[in-house]
Amino acid sequence: MKKYLRPGNFLIAAVLAWAGWLLFDWAVLQAVFRPDAAACHALQGNGACWGVVTEKFRVILFGRYPLDQQWRPLVALLLMFGLLGASAMPRCHGKRLFTAWGVGLLLVLLLLKGGLFGLDNVDTPRWGGLPLTLLLTLFGLGGAFPLAVLLALGRNGRLPVLRSLCTTFIEIIRGVPLVAVLFMAAFMFPLFMPKGWEFPALLRVLVGIILFAAAYMAEVIRGGLLAISRGQHEAAQALGLSYWQVQLTVVLPQTLRNVLPSLMNSAIALFKDTSLVIIVGLFELTGALGLAVDGDPKWRAFALDGYLFIAFIYWLGCFAMSRYSRALERLI
């Protein structure tokens, strides 16, 4: 124990304690929690202004969604949290969870979009905030996964043409930034469509996100495919199974179980990446804050406090996912 009693350690500990105290003082003791702009201005930067969050939390959480209809994104949000929570518990795993996801995500769309069962129609440009962040992440993952499996099988397959096609796609997407793919979705996809065919920006961006995530996930899955021994393929073929039967019943189940932790990393990356859609004009969590404070001279000075609050939400999500992924690794 004597080793730790060096003067250097005391110095570090003292500096840390002092920095921690300053932070605590700024974030809690001096901070203003009530939505009082005058009190926030009076702080002159000596304390955090969490009042910006209390004042603007509806815009931050739900973006431009009509105020009197905001129970709908709230219910959608709780539904998605519920599904995620159930998926984290191994005893809920099974075919029923699969069905629950399908029904749940349809319900989320129905709640947000409306137009049926007496719900007012709310167009996608007005969707925003945390529900949009989760929606992009979940639908992005759901769309990217099957595409990634096909790309990985294609790149590992026997047909040279298909192999080079999949390789080209994967390497191009992995070589360019997501911003470029989002620009493509926002500005180029509309040019591809014949006259009279218009898709909302949200759908185009989702397609961009799916293509981007699929390229990265395909490489993860391909790594798993390569780790399955040849004997497995040969044994399955010797039993008379067709190519797809071999893949679906023998190779993929083993592969996917092995690469699950790496796929979790892809999910975390995608969750963080959804913040980029603000660049093409969708107001998810990050964009919604800009929406809340940029146009309001009273609160504009406290954008920093708002961004810190949002950073904390993202941090919670990513930290929880990475801890879960580590636990998963131990289970496998």
Partner: peptide, 23 residues
């Protein structure tokens, strides 16, 4: 590691920028 890896880069860019411009 845990702090800077788990917050989206875009948010970090914005936070540093607001901090510089504001303070």
């Amino acid at each position: 590691v845990e702090i800077f890896r788990n917050v989206p880069l875009l948010l970090q860019v914005l936070i540093v920028y607001v901090l510089l411009i504001g303070r």
